[in-house]
Design a protein around this nucleic acid. Structure first.
Lengths: 361, 361
DNA sequence: GTGAAAGCGCTAACAT
DNA sequence: ATGTTAGCGCTTTCAC
């Protein structure tokens, strides 16, 4: 029988070595299991991998021995030999200068869904948060730490996206969010989202519907939401107006500032579709400061499905992507099961809450 | 020179194989780098690991060759040989029956901080979300996928905690949250948190301070917060009362129900310290429904530092643990740098927001 | 249906 | 200061 090596003792030697006070951890290898089960080491491997060539009785013998010894297959050795890792790398891009715990909750939800989808496909998830250039790293696939890479997070970190563009993982990357130049990206069905928002606001009996948000944001999804919103208004014979937007430090600030500008402009409106929930929360705050009542005077709908929208006043109606579907699509794309170049769209649904106002009879 | 194997061609053979239309991925190994740099393979390994025995000029030569070939050390082979993984496993326990994206935001923040701390120590983070028994898995260390394990998430999943208690990672586990029987756990300095809350509410000129929350919750930290709260009240000669609590499906529901019970009891009060922010949000909602004004009639302080607390009305004053410190402590504990048995405490600080009411002159 | 043996790509002990 | 060599623990081809 081949020995399992010189560094670590066979299980059968533990007693002796314990007495010799070795401080090396005791390791159980497939050779130990083989010895205990009275079979060859290769049979252990085959049995544990459920090879149909192995007799059931042998499998049972091996499994019993493995369990008795507390044996687990060494993932590193297995991965090295099989030439796969069984792992997906997930990179979450954050705003420069902010802590990892200040990540947009939307991306945390997405992260959770991705990990769940990866687990469903039998993959582990190697997660890293990258905000500063010193954090940047993309060699997961090249260094055989992962079989594919998923990129999510804020688009407001040019350095990070620049770094990851055509990085060391070429061909095995899935990206969340739509841009013109990322061919394999996955995003919400933003056009439908815009349509759903317009439809619902019209159903509330609203006449002057506006879009709030920056359609020139690097986050191109905002533009798509605006476009779907306008398309539906046009198709139903309504007036289409330019988006309302004033800049600010955070999305919340942008929402407040946009409302301020809008009210100052004396432009008439009775419904707002906001590009995202965090901006919508700022919009609600701005409207409240100005004593504009929601939803009595103005209906508001956001996008994202953030938890914060549940506890604001009034609770924020919002359009939420199907996180489960998003996770699965991203994982499949990273594993190469989706033809590159295809832009996948994640279904969205309206979450009814008070801010949208009741549907008119 | 030893060949790098039969499965994959040396870089020098790429041209030929390309022509032969092999569909195997081309791999660059340290042998290819050695050939290109004109040194031995072991020299490549030493050079890239910055072995002081290697001449600077040789190191430069090797690094140039490696870069030219796009070579990265194969993590699996390196980890196998070195017998370490450079990875930490992080398990996030969720409530049974809920999706990964419905995880408590507090735990997402903690997760982010842990990954950041791990990266700071040179470790990768292997994340898994476990809610259902089918997700349960704890053999990360035994199967050599990770050098240690960090356990966070809800305490309201008995099956999960039962599973992880004394699992296959014995001795290399760090746990968030305090319990009597997890000796190596890390938790917030809850006693100080209770003191800070009491101190602040008294400073607002409040006289009848109550604690809201279930001190018998499996989340034992609630009891500690209550205890620190009471200690301070006692030490300053104030009356101490039993906690207020009524059960509910979610923490938010518990908050609403507790307020309802409290108001029905006709018990006098002008300040509430809530065991956690999500319950506090329910408390605010309950008070609003009952037309009790916050902070004019009642001051409210929560615990956690959730983002949702920023956007509720009024914004929720809260006590927040230092997430950065928490991440570092958990990582160090999982890596064994902290003596087992010690209970580590993460510093907390008060986040001033309107719900606490102004400090009385 | 199982055993024998090779070797994944790397690091480190042992040479020189 | 660098080359030679063994072998980490596993999977898989090749024998029988």
């Amino acid at each position: 029988m081949k020995l399992s090596g010189v560094w670590y003792p066979l299980i059968s030697d533990i007693g002796r070595l314990w007495v010799e006070r070795t401080d090396r951890p005791i390791r159980v290898t497939s050779f130990d299991v083989a010895e205990k089960a009275g079979v060859n080491q290769s049979t252990v491997s085959r049995a544990l991998n459920d090879d149909p060539a192995i007799k059931d009785s042998t499998k049972a013998k091996v499994r019993t021995a493995a369990e008795a010894l507390g044996y687990y297959v060494d993932t590193r050795a297995s991965a090295l030999r099989r030439d796969r890792t069984g792992t997906l790398a997930i990179v979450v891009i954050g705003r420069p200068g902010t802590d990892a715990h200040a990540i947009n909750p939307f991306h945390y939800s997405l992260l959770g869904s991705i990990c769940a989808a990866a687990a469903g496909r039998g993959y582990q998830s190697l997660v890293s948060f990258q905000s500063e250039p010193t954090d940047f790293s993309d060699h997961f696939v090249r260094s055989r730490q992962a079989d594919g890479l998923i990129l999510i997070g804020t688009r407001n970190n040019d350095e990070a996206w620049e770094f990851h563009r055509g990085g060391a993982n070429a061909g095995k990357v899935a990206i969340w969010g739509s841009t013109l130049d990322d061919p394999g990206s996955i995003a919400s069905d933003n056009v439908t989202a815009g349509k759903l928002a317009a439809e619902r606001l019209l159903a509330a009996g609203r006449k002057r519907l506006l879009f709030v948000g920056d359609i020139d944001d690097p986050q191109r999804q905002f533009r798509e939401r605006y476009s779907g919103f306008c398309d539906y208004l046009r198709a139903t014979g309504h007036t289409v107006t330019d988006p309302v937007f004033a800049d600010g430090q955070t999305r919340f600030d942008q929402g407040r500032a946009s409302v301020a500008r809008l009210l100052a402009s004396k432009c008439e409106f009775d419904a707002l579709f906001c590009c995202c929930d965090s901006l919508a929360l700022g919009v609600l705050d701005g409207l409240r400061s100005a004593k504009v009542r929601v939803p009595e005077d103005v209906s508001v709908i956001g996008f994202d499905g953030l938890e914060s929208g549940l506890h604001c006043i009034p609770p924020l109606a919002t359009i939420q992507p199907d996180f489960g579907a998003a996770g699965v699509m991203l994982v499949d794309a990273a594993l190469g099961s989706i033809a590159p170049g295809e832009q996948q769209r994640v279904p969205v649904k309206l979450i009814e809450r008070a801010s949208a106002g009741p549907v008119a009879k």
